[in-house]
Amino acid sequence: MKDKRQITVPQMQPGQSGRVIQILGGHSLVNRLNSLGIIPGKRITKVSAMFMRGPVTLQVGRAQVAIGFGMAGRIMVEVD
């Protein structure tokens, strides 16, 4: 099982799950995402994405979080 791929959240398929690897961004972005439970090592599932670079909805633990396309692009995940 060595076929783990690193992609960004917008590249994930709806329904796909993965593990957060890192957040590419400044202190304040990392801070805001962390406070919503998006931290390296955490499993997340992509629920859906609006078309035309709209926001992405993620399942994070027990909660759902909607994230703008740009911010979502800074979250790197390793999908299974």
Binding site: P55, A63, Q64, V65, A66, I67, G68, F69, G70, M71
Partner: peptide, 10 residues
């Protein structure tokens, strides 16, 4: 204008 970042309640 910043991007959307919200928790969606159940």
């Amino acid at each position: 204008s910043p991007e959307l970042l919200i928790e969606i309640p159940p």
